[in-house]
Design a protein around this nucleic acid. Structure first.
Lengths: 124, 124
DNA sequence: CATGACAGTATCCTTTTCGACACTATGTGC
DNA sequence: GCACATAGTGTCGAAAAGGATACTGTCATG
């Protein structure tokens, strides 16, 4: 999340857009949510989906999303530990956003993270 | 934007989601885009919509989005200067995303930037 | 002559985010 | 008795993002 953006969100009609984004930016959140759309996952299962995310970061992002009520965390009192993450009802309501992002990305983003037509290969 | 996230986006199916977000995070981008949906705006018109955005930040965000091809910048050789910003065709394709975010935000975000049901007034 | 509007720049500084790396506890399998 | 898997935590430091403030040049207006 890019800092606290506003303390209140009644300023202008655009603010709820920003507020919504505020919950899903952060370097890994959108990806985590995306993967959780397909079902419950354990901590290390998520890690394996995102090879270069350190456990510290993953914990961070998961905790923040849990606080925001987007995901739920279920701990099994076992050894070795087992913790399952899944979308909450609220989290599931984000599906349209995630899908819109995915669709747009698939259509408009090249393999290098820039919109097509602005492909760095052109100048590199 | 939260740093360069990946250099390539063919890693996992979730990456295009992240790539798409990468283009619209940054503290003011989503709001700017939202306002531009209603039509072309001049620099200071945008500023007036976002009272606590410094000119430096605004220039920053506008330049980045211009580089990403989301908006176009039209300079009129006049004095006093006149510069108009508007959505590019690519930018306009983001409308579904922006609307999804707006809808979700309106339905789920309280006045304090947290999802409803997690309202800080409960504890404050 | 001073002021204001316009669209920015320049410089400095603080805050936030992210990454590397090491480390925890416990039970199972070898 | 050693390593491995699980789900993390702790500390440190670098990099990036963002904020505050002052400044630019030109023309029109008062």
């Amino acid at each position: 999340m890019v800092k606290a953006r506003h303390s209140r969100f009644d300023c202008t009609p655009g603010c709820s857009v920003e507020a919504a984004i505020g919950l899903i930016d952060g370097k890994w959140k959108s990806i985590i949510l995306w993967h959780l759309l397909s079902g419950t996952l354990r901590f290390n299962e998520i890690r394996r989906h995102m090879q270069n995310c350190t456990p510290r970061m993953l914990t961070n992002q998961l905790r923040e999303m849990e606080e925001d009520g987007l995901i739920t965390r279920k701990v099994y009192a076992q050894v070795p530990p087992k913790v399952e993450y899944s979308l909450s009802d609220l989290g599931r309501t984000m599906e349209p956003i995630l899908r819109a992002l995915k669709t747009w990305g698939d259509e408009n983003i090249g393999l290098y993270g820039k919109p097509v037509g602005h492909d760095p290969r052109d100048t590199a």
